[in-house]
């Protein structure tokens, strides 16, 4: 993977394009960020084909979550670059990058209202409204596929169990039709059967429709359930 610098006519500045011979859909190179106290600098590179899953492996506290947050541009990066379909993240407005590369955090966010209203909440944002409309039938279908009863639709989101809320957050992200989902321990609060349902749902989502990819942080070994898996071991990092 060697990024080539090109200056296309009629555009300002330099746009970095990936060489497409490898067919990478999502890639990042030498992304470094600062974590912890005392601060350490960690870095990583990887690339993914469409439909692929990248599993990030490292011991607890090594910075897996921070790396995911950095890829979502929620945590400042010190250096490095990421590409989506060959387009550098520098050419995306940060909010648009986040809308395409959605982070599903370990602790699910719960907004005021029912589970249904929680699924609908992102559709009030300008960047989402312009592209997709909320489809309740699809939402119910995804909920069911994740092993949740559609009866929960009218349940107050604050009363959901940890596992139910985690699946709500995943469905909420998938409904937005992102290009990449960054999943932080999506099955940590799920029992064996539910975890299997979630992985099946994700595998189906990856294989259907437009090109998609997922980055996964998991202690449960979920990556074994996907066909196209790349594993990334996060190096321990150096003092910064």
């Amino acid at each position: 993977m060697r990024p080539r610098r090109l200056t296309p006519n009629g555009t300002e500045g330099i746009i970095c394009l990936m060489e497409t011979d490898g067919g990478e859909f999502f890639a990042f190179r030498d992304i470094t960020c600062r974590i912890g106290n005392p601060p350490r600098r960690i870095g990583a590179s990887a690339s993914l084909v469409a439909g692929g899953v990248l599993a990030i492996k490292a011991p607890s506290g090594a910075g897996k979550t921070t790396m995911l947050r950095t890829l979502a541009r929620l945590h400042p990066h010190l250096s490095g670059e990421a590409w989506l379909s060959g387009r550098s993240w520098r050419t995306f407005p940060p909010s648009l990058w986040r809308r395409r590369v959605i982070l599903v955090g370990q602790e699910p966010a719960r907004f005021h209202g029912t589970l249904g209203e929680n699924l609908e909440r992102p559709f009030r944002l300008g960047a989402v409204k312009r592209e997709v409309v909320f489809n309740p039938a699809q939402a119910r279908a995804l909920l069911e596929a994740s092993g949740l009863s559609p009866d929960l639709f009218d349940q107050d989101a604050r009363l959901l169990s940890g596992g139910e809320a985690a699946r709500m957050a995943l469905v909420r992200a998938l409904l937005l039709q992102p290009d990449v989902v960054l999943l932080d321990e999506p099955t940590a609060s799920l029992d064996h059967g539910a975890a299997e349902a979630v992985c099946r749902l994700l595998a189906a989502w990856l294989s259907e429709g437009p090109p998609r990819a997922a980055v996964l942080v998991s202690h449960a070994g979920d990556e074994a359930r996907f066909p196209l898996v790349t594993t990334l071991s996060l190096p321990p990092g150096e003092p910064a």
Binding site: R98, R100, F111, A127
Partner: peptide
């Protein structure tokens, strides 16, 4: 914070 960051993840502008 969790809700604000979730909204940012969905593509919200800081104001949203």
């Amino acid at each position: 914070r969790r809700e604000v960051e979730a909204l940012l993840s969905f593509g919200a502008t800081p104001w949203e």
